[in-house]
Write a protein that binds this DNA or RNA. Sequence first.
DNA 1: TAGAGCCTAGACAACGTTGTCAGTGGCAGG
DNA 2: CCTGCCACTGACAACGTTGTCTAGGCTCTA
Lengths: 362, 362
Amino acid sequence: MAENDRRPPGFPHASDGRQWPPGAVEPRYGTRPTMKDVAARAGVGLKTVSRVVNGEPGVTPDTERRVQEAIDALGFRRNDSARVLRKGRTASIGLVLEDLADPFYGPLSRAVEEVARAHGALLINGSSAEDPAREQELVLALCARRVDGLVVIPAGDDHRYLEPEIKAGVATVFVDRPAGRIDADAVMSDSYGGARSGVAHLIAHGHRRIGFIGDQPRIHTAAERLRGYRAAMEDAGLPVDSSWVSLGSTDPVRVRDAAAAILDGPSPVTAFFAGNNRVTVTLVRVLAERRRRVALVGFDDFELADLLDPGVTVIAQDSAQLGRTAAERLFRRLDGGRSGTERSVLPTRLIARGSGELRPEG
Amino acid sequence: MAENDRRPPGFPHASDGRQWPPGAVEPRYGTRPTMKDVAARAGVGLKTVSRVVNGEPGVTPDTERRVQEAIDALGFRRNDSARVLRKGRTASIGLVLEDLADPFYGPLSRAVEEVARAHGALLINGSSAEDPAREQELVLALCARRVDGLVVIPAGDDHRYLEPEIKAGVATVFVDRPAGRIDADAVMSDSYGGARSGVAHLIAHGHRRIGFIGDQPRIHTAAERLRGYRAAMEDAGLPVDSSWVSLGSTDPVRVRDAAAAILDGPSPVTAFFAGNNRVTVTLVRVLAERRRRVALVGFDDFELADLLDPGVTVIAQDSAQLGRTAAERLFRRLDGGRSGTERSVLPTRLIARGSGELRPEG
DNA sequence: TAGAGCCTAGACAACGTTGTCAGTGGCAGG
DNA sequence: CCTGCCACTGACAACGTTGTCTAGGCTCTA
């Protein structure tokens, strides 16, 4: 409604009673100088200012100096909205992730930013909070801003809403999890292989009864890690008791309850495989409170894992590398790459620190 | 140069030999439909489409339906660049911080985003990597995009370059550290008071020789924390040996060297106060390797601090609250708040976990 | 039934920039 | 001196949207 606070029509120059400090006539508060203003002040044409601002050739040093002086005097800054409107490219990319505050996404986000910066682009980002509706809302808002490309860590599993955008030329790369119901580039860690090797590691240290606590299997990575767990157990000819597996949320309270149920149940496990970062940390807390030592391997590394006692053995994925790879793919597309969609899988690495090498007790 | 890939003039409808899958004639790759296209398809005027898209009143249900169908059929999405150009507001704010990958900034960034979202704005952000030149470059790029406001965690100490922008109406709030050489809103933690109480805590536990390892004092927070350290020592009538104080970078290698020099020097300390997060973590590692137990209080909390042995006593600051407060101030300004600049200081909280309660040894 | 008043709808200009194109003047070569 | 070329410069349209203003059709009342 503030749109209507303008001067009433018919009184184009009526005294509007504004009070500025005496010296501050130009520039006025809330009004920015345009190229036209600069041109007028420098006594040149509009286009000449444009040329100077963009470093285009064909301007005499003397003219350039006059323009530059006017720019500095007025505090002119080019309006990129107008530029974008005219040129069609925004030199910005969007990043949609689950939660900026999650330490897993910090390095990823930073890596994407660095690649963008190397290509002269800015990064606009937002958190979906794991909510598919919010993911869509964000993605479409970014498309309305006409970002040149998108890096998406999907929360939902149906991305058909992106089809018109992709068709219209918005390069899109999915990270960490694949897109749902559409064909698109994706860069992921090897969740299946990582989980499988982590569980195999526990088995190699003598464990027969191993629990798995992970996220809901509608999340691709969670499902893959579960699959890896089952595969490792099967490889070793070990049965999986359904009471050992918990696939709820990663909320600390629920993980705590699940772990307690598994450890206090009729067939307690001697080791856990944790499906992600947050589960691992909660399990570390839970296990620290118990007398009996339970082995633990977690998917995803975290800071200070080596300082705990015992150090936490993890399947590490390189989140910065995920981001970098995805962003590079994105810019390759923007630079004209029209090849078919690619799906890359980055390897994981087992880092043994102690918790995964505990022998079964009792 | 792709600008020139257009159809040559004079052949407006020459066969251009493009090959689309038979059904996919419209929309064409790389070309987005505009309101004009929608209007043509729906058989209405341009402005009517605008009204429907923006939910403005004055459109018959029947007309609205026709327009909506055309929008869906064409996959139309409003071009916000044009909208911004016309309306003057971008509904986006910029966040410039030091490093997105630093866990301290995750929650801050997320908090700013949530507030922005509540006000219907998007967040554009970038990392300055502690480089003043890069900070300026980023800030000005954001201004060129015409963000409505800026939240800045300053890397440099001279922000006069922002004066024209602020005068032109870009609301700006500094976080964590104050602006340099200009008068601007700022939201900070109580570095001085926090450090002072942390050091007093160590003194209360019997320490007389206390080391301080922090960042370069050109950084405001670092200087304030050093000041708090000195004040606490002076309050207790304790001398400060200059060999106990190290003000270099927070780089692990240099912190490690500094700590070793202080502990192995002629007058070794029995406790450390760490100037920030990263220093604390490095000191935890260094001290864990030594036989003699050295007390430690760190500025800034971090995940798992309670799980270490001993738990790490810290002066906690609420980084999410910093971000929230700053963003709320920003939007209050944007909503017309024209009062003088404010500088808020948020309190810190001592969390005792063990490392700060160790008694001096030897 | 005429006139006032309301509601819907569209024509048009403007936002600030950039690509195109045409105009100017200087200078070298014939 | 004229011609042609070149370097420099500016007028103008266009990008896609929204605010303003006006036109036309309808209802309601006197």
